[in-house]
């Protein structure tokens, strides 16, 4: 067998149909089970994985073949549901969108729960504080006047205005990458602001002022320090920090 390269597995081009290169990895998972111990610890496994495998596949392999007690969330496993955000090698990502070959396989791959939210078990965190902030910005269409008899029409330009923030899947990768949120969990967080942005700049919605008022809070948009951690973390590529800046601008121009 060929010796493995020091870093980043190179997949040979045109390796032939059905032939997928394999490589060995060390997977280290942060374990926590409050029913056994208050202390978290690392467990590690040596696995032989394939060039098409993602971190989620490695976790599946561990759970299905090595240690069934490893706990993590995943639903669709294809980057749409946003269940499996976790801290992989110190960065928030979706385990189902992170290919093992894109990570440094010469070193152990570290998998931890996302930071800033209470850990319930292993990689599962309590998402309630996150969803509470989301609920507070009223993430639903609010309109005035009569119901139209047909659908509410919108021009392509008006739709384009908030297109970026419609992509959010509420995985919490952004909010749990924000150092301001880590401190005390009081900050609304990037995800709530992104979803407020989606309605504030929607031409069909009439409650923009209410949402701006909610975010003009001590713990609202003004706690953003533009560290861009959220933009880096977003698995959907949303320009999160830009969206927050636009909400700041909207509050300013409404009030000054």
């Amino acid at each position: 067998m060929e010796k493995e390269p020091a870093s980043k597995v190179e997949l040979p081009a045109g390796a032939g149909g059905g032939e997928i290169p394999s490589f060995d990895i060390t997977l280290k998972v942060r374990r926590y089970n409050p029913e056994v111990s208050d202390e978290a610890h690392w467990d590690e496994w040596q696995l032989t994985m394939y060039g098409t495998d993602r971190v989620l596949d490695a976790l599946h392999k561990v759970k299905w073949e090595h240690d069934g007690s490893v706990s993590f969330r995943r639903s669709c496993a294809h980057g749409v549901c946003g269940s499996d955000a976790m801290r992989i090698n110190g960065r928030n990502r979706l385990a189902c969108k992170t290919l093992l070959k894109d990570l440094d396989t010469s070193k152990p791959i570290l998998v931890e729960p996302i930071k800033g939210l209470p850990v319930e078990k292993d990689l599962i965190v309590d998402m309630e504080p996150f969803f509470q902030s989301y609920r507070e910005i009223m993430p639903f269409l609010i309109t005035k006047g009569h119901e139209p008899t047909k659908e509410r029409l919108q021009s392509a330009e008006d739709r384009e205005r908030y297109d970026d923030t419609t992509k959010c899947i509420l995985c919490a990768a952004c909010t749990s990458s924000c150092p301001v949120f880590w401190t005390d969990g009081q900050y609304f967080g990037p995800a709530a602001i992104v979803n407020a942005h989606r309605f504030i700049f929607d031409s069909r919605d009439d409650a923009g002022d209410m949402r701006l008022e909610i975010l003009n809070d001590k713990e609202g948009v003004w706690r953003c320090r533009t560290t861009f951690n959220c933009t880096d973390a977003c698995p959907r590529g949303i320009q999160v920090t830009k969206a927050i800046a636009e909400v700041k601008q909207a509050i300013l121009t409404r009030r000054v």
Partner: peptide, 23 residues
Amino acid sequence: GRVSPGYSRTRSSRGNFEMGAWL
């Protein structure tokens, strides 16, 4: 749907002070 006590914003602190400070 219970939010851990440490995370709940007990009183909303709206007002323009933070906006003024930012500006």
